[in-house]
Write a protein that binds this DNA or RNA. Structure first.
Lengths: 292, 292
DNA sequence: TTTTCATTATCAATTTCGCCAATCTTGGTC
DNA sequence: GACCAAGATTGGCGAAATTGATAATGAAAA
């Protein structure tokens, strides 16, 4: 017998209804079908899955143990169906969403991520603000952003939903700068920068001296400085430009860096459009992004 | 027009196939249908969702922007369908799975969590080992466990899948013990205990003196000691017995404790039965558990 | 035990609905 | 302007689900 690759969701709906109503006849009422139809639907479902789902013993209908396992999955499928329909039939979104993100994320991941959303909703305008994480959080707290993607540190910002995780690596344009004997020359963003703190803390813990040779608010500016051999910097592994070199900590005696995490925070009350964007970002990243 | 609450997944399958094959006719081949059937299926789907999904312009079929959004959800629904069928038709599981968990988790969450699994698979035997996290990890590394649920610290054990997160609180049976003026009397498990480390580190950071008045490997033993007013201990918020009191850090000047996290680690090669149990645990906790 | 009641299973008739095959329409190409 | 490739349409067929009625089942009441 050929096993189909999909199950008629109406059968799943019937199954859930029977369990929740505690009987075929009551479920039939809820499903606006005859009792016999429900009986046959359950039979078809059981045949299709090759498992007995319901224990029809004395006076009470209960799911079998296997049935209970299936039940959870069935509910999940049904809710996704409903969501699919609801979203598809939803009136066209419009309005402005104020989104904040660190510059590196905004320039590497965000464009591709948001492209299908903005194309699907041409009347929605995104206002993207690029700043350092701590500045983003300040702006967000002041009500200046609907959604913010921020770098998460163990010491703050534990609220929000984690949407991204990535390995942090040491990077340079000229390996020679690591071995000068003097303090390690660092290129990074100005003070509230999370990576800057991450790097200096790791170096301090190791007792290795360092100095900031170049501090620039622009990511492209930092890249250029590193490329010119001014010093080393810290970047998420997948955001390293091709012409820069990832340094092997073990070989050069540099401290290991903890992974970076990006979390999404959103205002407690959110317009429908912003809410949809938030759901979209979380959803897309949880699929396309790296596994936790 | 009545909006159904489910979509025929065959229509979704057709939609995905058309997008992936780049045409109706090619998709028809893959779906083992005629071209006209595919055409009608897409038409039905578009009518049902009230959205145009495909741009049939010159020579090439492409999803519309709305179509792209739907596409992701459709793929997800289809994969859940396949998973449902695969699991339902899977031969009966059997064998032994060696599972390790901290005692508190094993006594509070685990039984309810595992009950439907073991009832659905009567020929599976679970061998549950309760130990302190570090001992569990040692046993796991030695190959003595298939799956381990362990408390996760920022300083170690960052691998694995996080399956639980919970607020950690100070607990006592007699509020008087906090204000004795002397060092804070602690009740906890022996040395490798994660909570013990968490508590003493937090107190040290605050500069508050402490001493361990009672150290017991059994959770019930610790509870009894606390209940008897021997001292305070640290517990996940939802695992506090009803007859013990949660202390308000702010009022009593106790340090705030970071949340506790439980992660699941599993052996690189796992028998089918263990693999299914692992998936089940992750799946159930991600639903029933607290939101991250 | 027998009766009764409530429930699910089964059956035949009917209707609905999707598929096929052939044909029409469209838009790009030579 | 004819040709070609690909999707849209249409009418008839056939499979499958629903219905409504009836049979079987099993528990409680008489």
């Amino acid at each position: 017998m050929a096993v189909p690759s999909t199950v008629d969701p109406e059968l799943l709906r019937a199954f859930v209804a029977v369990v929740e109503c505690g009987g075929f006849s009551q479920a039939a009422g809820r499903l606006l079908r005859g009792q016999s139809a429900v009986s046959l639907q359950i039979k078809r479902l059981e045949e299709c899955l090759g498992v007995r789902l319901l224990e029809r013993s004395s006076r009470r209908v209960q799911p079998t143990p296997e049935g209970e396992l299936i039940l959870g999955r069935a509910r999940r499928i049904l809710s996704l169906h409903e969501e699919l329909i609801a979203r598809a039939r939803e009136p066209e979104l419009s309005g402005v969403v104020r989104l904040g993100a660190p510059e590196d994320f905004a320039t590497t991941r965000l464009p591709r991520l948001l492209s299908s959303f903005v194309r699907a909703h041409p009347r929605v305008a995104l206002e993207v603000t690029c700043e350092l994480t701590l500045d983003l959080l300040a702006r967000f707290d002041a009500g200046g952003l609907d959604i913010a993607l921020v770098k998460r540190e163990p010491t703050f910002g534990l609220e929000g939903t984690r949407v991204w995780r990535e390995q942090l690596v040491w990077v340079t344009g000229d390996k020679a700068v690591v071995d000068t004997g003097g303090p390690l020359p660092l290129v990074c963003s100005p003070i509230p920068c999370v990576y800057r703190g991450r790097a200096t803390a790791a170096l301090d813990a190791q007792g290795r001296p360092w100095r900031v040779v170049y501090s620039c608010g622009s990511l492209a500016g930092s890249h250029a400085a590193v490329r010119a051999g001014l010093g080393v910097t810290v970047l998420p592994k997948d955001m390293v430009p091709v012409d820069l070199t990832i340094l092997d900590e073990a070989v050069l005696g540099l401290p290991l860096l903890k992974d970076t995490e990006i979390a999404l925070v959103s205002a407690p009350t959110l317009a429908l459009t912003a809410e949809r964007l938030r759901d979209f970002i979380i959803r897309e990243l949880e699929h396309g992004g790296p596994r936790t």
